[in-house]
Design a protein around this nucleic acid. Structure first.
Length: 825
RNA sequence: GCGGAUGUGGCGGAAUUGGCAGACGCACCAGACUUAGGAUCUGGCGGGUAACACCGUGGGGGUUCGAGUCCCUUCAUCCGCACCA
């Protein structure tokens, strides 16, 4: 038998053993508490990168730890397999996206297996397979039937490079999230999911997620962007029409000195028609179209606008106010029109000053000038209403309520809540996605397929255009179909769904991945859902996590799920950095997991990554750190191998009596380590400190080796505990050493050790002695020493005597079991 | 501009409830073993000092017997949002 630590042999051996014995296969078991541990499934890009390794190493520690603690653990893995890169690769290399994708999946699965992660591979899924996307389409059908999927023409974000539209969330700083091309606005008919119907619930239920990082919840709150106010209409002079505005400050309505419409607003043309200003208005609106969203919304952009020549009537005081159009009012927020109150809104203030529009103060306070001419900026704070007729004297807050009440009573307007969140645009003009199950019938119009008519299969034999345009448009066998209602001629929708739709319900599918009639069985989901621990990158804080929450609430509403939130606890792991920046091909600082695992083994790779920093923080890659982890495993190997034979016959007694000081100290270390490692994993996910505690135990054991009267029972207990504690982190080497010690069964199926309270009891403890809060000496005393005796012992110390000589002792503070602090002046 | 996070040795990081700052690891230094060492083992390792004293958790101030930890203020870095009416 090989005496040296050979990770190649060991890791393959135990991976095969676990697989053959189906160790990680789980089924519902009502006898056991369940634990659903989930890592965000990867896009099959071709190769595992270090971010994946970190993600799955963290998840595996949790899964193995929970399993050893008696939980029935669901720990699945799958593939987020639809998406653009496959299609781009197809265009470039003339390989079909499905071939490219399947090859990548096979490769990455192989790499994943070398990591030795405790996945139940029987539950593997890929979103691009018909047996999966059939149910992605099912989701669409159900949303459609419930009025939550609809088609509308609107200005959408178009990425010219990807040749497709993007959801608002996928536009970052005016550019495409994926390819960074500048996004254009286009008027198109597109499919949307009505996520805005769930805005309030998505916001409120964040309160029920104490296990989520505050940062992520804040980001979601900002994204939902709830604001309370009111909507009211202002009649337009000379026209039988009115303009509707949204405001959060109806209390300032008497300070309105002009109105603004977004340049794209449909009323713009109507009201300026025939006016002298019409040409200028048209020119301005036209110029806005060519300005990109990016520059238009940049904070530095100066406010610009033109007068339309039209006037509106303020319904509160009958005043006639000019209507302008301006760049700073956006069509897709609120009603695309505002009432402008320059005295109390900074943007309106800047605009009014620039164009010499009157400014009227209607909120008075001690810290703002009463005269508009003296103002240097808008006053947005608290105060009382003035120049506001019957409302004068009201505080801002009561003024808001009073004006809304007045507007409602006089049918002028109504109190409303406005959200920043927009409906989710799910159409993509691409091939490699789940087809939207819709047909267009000449007679019946838009017809959504029924559940039993699914799936709408993606045709395999297609030709990819170099432009990126979807080949589906040209596949007649796909587009030409019959209407499911009337049987007449019909045309199929050629848009496919955003891949975020696929990933919004995959965690439900894992509960019953082979279910054929429904996306998942309710019984299985009732047992497993919600996910107890979700782990992944913070880059999904808004998109994926918001969409998944939306789907979960919808599925709850149609009685498919019993939970309203999919993920109880969320861990957002930090990035893996090299030379202080994210690993990327362009920077040339990529470390390949495959190479690391090949050279040092999966156990070393896992150990290094888990030890180098706590999971939420960024991790700086260090080749020397990897060496250190490898050396540690070699030390463990030698330590255990040294005792492997001699401890075999030793029995660990039920209780340890008459131990000498060294043996007691070792037992103390063993059991404090069990305690610390358990607490560090369970409560805080601080794997780095858990591992450092195990290292300390190994150091203590190494030092104990030299003792003349070594107690082998105590050593055996320590070694066994050490191996079991280390198992979630580095399972292969632990399994091997476990068997080298002639232990039965798998170490992965051992019970997590419990610490022995008896072993934690100490007779003597060290107390720190301070003078004025500064440590001057230490002293060993019996644990049960009285406060008086302890004070006396402390004062007797030579070094203390020196320091307090000639001083008066004002006070002595004793913190039991810890320290004595002498206050002397 | 708003919101959030972070700031500790040469480096990664510990210090969980206000109680020994720097656990553990890396790097480095010295020694042992050795034909050899990029293996292994032993010891050292914040600054400062002969040794103490003293100084030290981004900076300044405060509360406290005692502050990395609490409060005020300020700086730096990172992340998110940003004309949202």
């Amino acid at each position: 038998m090989n005496k040296k630590y050979d990770h190649h042999v060991i890791e393959r051996k135990w991976q095969e053993y676990w697989e053959e014995n189906q160790f990680f296969k789980v089924i519902e078991d009502p006898e056991k508490p369940k634990y659903y541990d989930l890592e965000m499934f990867p896009y099959p890009s071709g190769n595992l990168h270090m971010g994946h390794v970190r993600n799955y190493a963290i998840g595996d520690v949790v899964a193995r730890f929970k399993s050893m603690n008696g939980y029935n653990v669901l720990h699945p893995m799958g593939w987020d397999a639809f998406g653009l890169p496959a299609e781009n690769a197809a265009i470039k290399n003339a390989t079909h996206p499905s071939i490219w994708t399947n090859a990548n999946i096979a490769n990455m699965k192989q790499q994943l297996k070398t990591m030795g992660i405790s996945y139940d591979w029987d539950r593997e899924l890929a979103t691009c397979k018909p047996d999966y996307y059939k149910f992605t389409q099912w989701m669409f059908v159900k949303l459609y039937e419930n009025g939550l999927a609809y088609k509308k023409k609107s200005a959408v974000n178009w990425c010219p490079s990807c040749q497709t539209v993007l959801a608002n969330e996928q536009v970052v700083d005016g550019a495409c999230e994926r390819c960074e091309a500048e996004v254009e606005k286009k008027q198109l008919e597109q499919w949307f999911f009505k996520i805005t119907d769930y805005a309030q619930r998505l916001l409120d239920d964040l309160e029920q997620l104490p296990g989520w990082p505050e940062k992520v919840k804040t980001m979601q709150r900002n994204w939902i962007g709830r604001s309370e106010g009111c909507q009211f209409s202002m009649p337009i002079e000379g026209l039988n029409q009115s303009m509707t505005v949204f405001t959060t400050r109806p209390d300032t309505v008497f300070g309105v000195t002009y109105m603004v419409l977004a340049p794209e607003h449909p009323l713009v043309e109507v009201i300026s028609q025939g006016k002298a200003e019409a040409a200028a208005v048209k020119k301005f609106a036209g110029s806005m179209k060519s300005v990109s969203e990016l520059t238009r919304t940049a904070n530095e952009t100066e406010k610009e606008g033109v007068f339309t020549g039209a006037y509106a009537l303020n319904p509160m005081n009958g005043e006639r106010v000019p209507i302008w159009i301006a760049n700073y009012v956006l069509m897709d927020y609120g009603t695309g029109a505002i009432m402008a109150v320059p005295a109390h809104d900074q943007r309106d203030f800047e605009f009014a000053r620039k164009y010499d529009i009157p400014i009227r103060v209607v909120i008075k306070s001690t810290d703002s000038p009463a005269d508009a001419a003296e103002m240097t900026e808008a006053y947005t704070g608290d105060g009382v209403m003035v120049n506001s007729g019957a409302f004068d004297g009201l505080q801002v807050e009561e003024g808001i309520a009073a004006t809304i009440k007045h507007m409602e009573e006089h049918s002028i307007g109504v109190g409303t809540v406005n959200f920043r969140l927009r409906d989710w645009l799910i159409s993509r003009q691409r091939y490699w996605g789940a087809p939207i199950p819709i047909v267009y019938c000449e007679k019946c119009g838009i017809v959504c397929l029924k559940e039993d008519q699914l799936p709408v299969l993606l045709p395999e034999d297609v030709e990819f255009k170099p432009s990126g345009e979807s080949p589906l448009n040209y596949v007649e066998s796909f587009t030409r179909t019959t209407c499911p209602d009337c049987g007449g001629e019909a045309r199929r929708e050629t848009d496919t769904m955003d891949t975020f739709v696929c990933s919004s319900w995959y965690f439900d599918r894992y509960c019953s991945p082979h279910e054929e009639n429904l996306p998942f069985s309710k019984e299985a989901a009732d047992y497993w859902m919600p996910v107890d621990q979700y782990i992944g990158g913070v880059e999904h804080a808004i998109l994926h996590l918001m969409y998944a929450r939306f789907f979960t609430k919808f599925l709850y509403d149609i009685d498919m799920l019993s939970c309203q939130e999919p993920f109880i606890n969320l861990l957002t792991q930090g990035m893996v950095l090299k030379d202080s920046s994210k690993m990327s091909k362009s920077k040339g600082n990529v470390v390949s997991p495959e190479e690391i695992i090949n050279t040092y083994g999966a156990d070393t790779a896992r150990l290094f990554i888990l030890f180098a920093s706590p999971p939420e923080r960024d991790l700086e890659w260090s080749d020397q750190g990897v060496e250190g982890a490898y050396r540690f495993l070699n030390r463990i190997w030698r330590l255990v191998m040294e005792y492997a034979e001699s401890i075999q016959a030793i029995q660990i007694p039920d209780s340890f009596d008459n131990l000498d000081d060294d043996a007691r100290a070792l037992r103390f270390k063993t059991h404090t380590t069990i305690k610390k490692v358990s607490e560090d994993i369970e409560g805080r996910f601080n794997f780095n400190t858990a591992i450092s505690a195990i290292m300390e135990l190994s150091n203590t054991l190494n030092a104990y080796k030299d003792k003349e009267q070594a107690n082998l029972a105590v050593v055996k207990e320590a070694l066994q505990s050490l191996l079991v504690l280390l198992t979630p982190f580095t399972p292969h080497i632990c399994e091997e050493l476990w068997h080298r010690c002639q232990k039965e069964g798998s170490i992965c199926q051992q019970k997590w050790p419990k610490y022995d309270l008896q072993a934690l009891i100490q007779d003597e403890i060290e107390i720190v002695v301070q003078i004025m809060g500064k440590v001057r000496d230490r002293l060993w005393v019996p644990v049960d020493i009285s406060e008086e005796d302890l004070k006396a012992r402390a004062l007797e110390l030579e070094r203390i005597q020196e320091h307090i000589q000639g001083k008066k002792i004002a006070k002595i503070i004793v913190v039991p079991q810890k320290l004595v602090n002498i206050v002397a002046k």
